[in-house]
Design a protein around this nucleic acid. Structure first.
Lengths: 346, 346
DNA sequence: TTTTGGCACTCAGGCGACAAGAGTGCTAAA
DNA sequence: TTTAGCACTCTTGTCGCCTGAGTGCCAAAA
């Protein structure tokens, strides 16, 4: 792919994209020769630009308006031209600052991560809330609220706490409850919530459970407790940064974006994609395969706890984003969050 | 106040406001005589309009553009002219529909309330999440995660569950924990979280606690658990409805609103105001005393659980809102939510 | 005394013309 | 192969004009 483009084409393409990222204005041949240490006349640049347009890396809004990068152009830029540097220490510090508060709950930490992404990048921060079913079971406890009502509280390895109200068919004595609790904790230790559910169904099917009433109760309770219908959630911070972008500076565009953000499932689906991949992912424009987010790009990375991937986070903005500065931000935030979630509860 | 305005002035003011609410266009003298069963010529209406403008109930954007209501106009309308009817059964059904899902947690119920407000009113729904400290304690439980780390789980009468990670100074045996738990549950039953905190401090100060190491531990743990730094939270649904309103159909306006919504503390403060008042409250425009929300009005009501007020909810929109239809919606949603939270967990 | 028709006045919004400016493509010369 | 020159295109902003909606005021009618 990259081989097709000559050295010179690449240089000019890079210059155009960076100019456009900086100014949000269609780039003319003139400004390239001025600002980018390219020793060619505007005319030469023009012929290269025409070529790049033929190849689909650039397009012109109209005859006399310079060029803007296409999605293909951005893609090539990100894949082949971009050099990401390390994050400067000031930004690192800014990100870390967000976690310097004490007494943060898991949910708060995630929210702060999203805030950090947003404030440091000046775009919109996204953090996916870990899905219950993929995390590792650690402990379950039942709190009796009334004769029939129980509160099931369970904790995952990563420190996620979930509680669920259960109504049991029959009243259970404190002793029964204690036994059930102990049994469940022994059986499910070290399994993911999903595995734990499977395990319970398995055990239920086995004969030995059939004549043990206590176990039956235990199974009933736990499967009620572990049922996880939620489709996940995502924490969005800095929506207003989006509205600063000139590409959405029209009413239609703004409404579209706000509506897309309201429907969180869209974003969840996108964040899902980068769940089990290493490093930072970039989705450009239509690569999101999402009508509502046309013209938007995502930069995402997965974060993990002690026992593997928990979720993913990232930044969303217009296609025209300063990838070279945002990629390290996302990277650093993800690794910092991972570190926090690993050590937080041991 | 109302006495100053003649019958005729009131009729015409009402007609103008209702016309403006419906059309969002400045209202001319002509359209009033056409649509509102007022047997006067445009010229007569004009003189009344001029009078109403002098009195501050109307204003004109420019010489040849009809009149629009001022905040004072809306206020008079809401206080003196408005007749709120009962909610029609279709809307009631629509609202109830939102709660017809099973397995809803407290947080889900609140979110659904906000969604209901938004979809039925076609404006933006707000629901304040109950503050921990004002709710009544019901049960506390400690889950041991590791040698030093405990998870404190406590439940309030209204079914709110909160958990908090605590690091204790010394390792506690399961038996110690059980004793502490029992003691705390006995001591704090029926108190509000805030009272419970005070109680603990009191008991700590008394001598009898000083030579009971176990109690000391109990106090330490519980005060760590009950510490509530959160400033509350608010669930916003239907932001995009806001952007449909012609009064915010400019970039500046949109950005301002989105930014105001991002800063939830503003909305929390406003919802706080209606916490301990009966019935539906209406705040119009500058009555919110909030620069960022200029031109916005709120219609709010408090909701309660078994033991008194839990929080408040409402609808936010432009000053030009169909108050007569939205007030019953807010009222009904609040009472329905209250009913749900009362019976939910007994 | 109240209401109404008539009339002059004002102002926003839409439309077309026009000039300026930016950038291109092409061609011929270096 | 590169570049200078030039004609061409297209957007953007501005100016002036017209039209329509609505007002305020006044004198006549009820």
């Amino acid at each position: 792919m990259a081989g097709i483009l000559s050295e010179r084409c690449q240089k000019i393409l890079e210059a155009i994209i960076e100019e456009y990222i900086a100014t949000a204005q269609p780039v003319g041949s003139r400004s390239i020769t001025m600002n980018h240490a390219i020793n060619l006349s505007p005319a030469s640049v023009r012929s290269v630009m025409a070529e790049l347009e033929d190849l689909g890396y650039l397009s012109s809004p109209h005859t006399s308006a310079g060029r803007i990068p296409t999605e293909k152009g951005y893609r090539f830029y990100v894949d082949s031209l971009l050099r990401v540097s390390d994050l400067d220490s000031h930004s690192k510090d800014q990100i870390e600052q967000h976690y310097r508060k004490h007494g943060l709950q898991m949910a708060d930490v995630l929210r702060e991560a999203s805030r950090a992404l947003s404030t440091v990048s000046h775009y919109t921060g996204l953090v996916m809330v870990p899905r219950l079913r993929t995390t590792v079971f650690r402990h379950i406890e039942f709190v009796k609220l009334s004769a029939r009502q129980l509160l099931a509280v369970f904790v995952t390895q990563s420190g996620l706490v979930q509680n669920r109200l259960i109504t049991s068919d029959e009243e259970l004595s404190p002793r029964d409850l204690e036994q059930i609790t102990n049994y469940l904790n022994r059986t499910m230790a070290g399994k993911s919530i999903q595995e734990a559910q499977v395990q319970i169904v398995l055990e239920m099917a086995q004969e030995k459970a059939l004549y043990d009433i206590l176990l039956q109760r235990a199974f009933k309770l736990s499967s009620a407790a572990l049922a996880d219908e939620s489709n996940g959630d995502v924490i969005i911070e800095g929506t207003s940064h989006f509205l600063e972008q000139p590409e959405f500076a029209d009413l239609q565009g703004m409404k579209r974006i706000v509506r897309a953000f309201e429907q969180k499932s869209l974003l969840i689906e996108l964040l899902d994609r980068s769940l089990y991949t290493q490093g930072v992912q970039v989705m450009i424009g239509s690569e999101t395969e999402c009508q509502e987010l046309a013209g938007c790009s995502l930069i995402t990375a997965a974060y993990s706890g002690k026992r593997g991937t928990l979720g993913s986070l990232g930044v969303i903005g217009p296609n025209r984003m300063p990838y070279s500065t945002i990629i390290p931000i996302v990277d650093y935030t993800a690794s910092l969050l991972s570190r926090l979630l690993e050590t937080d509860n041991d």
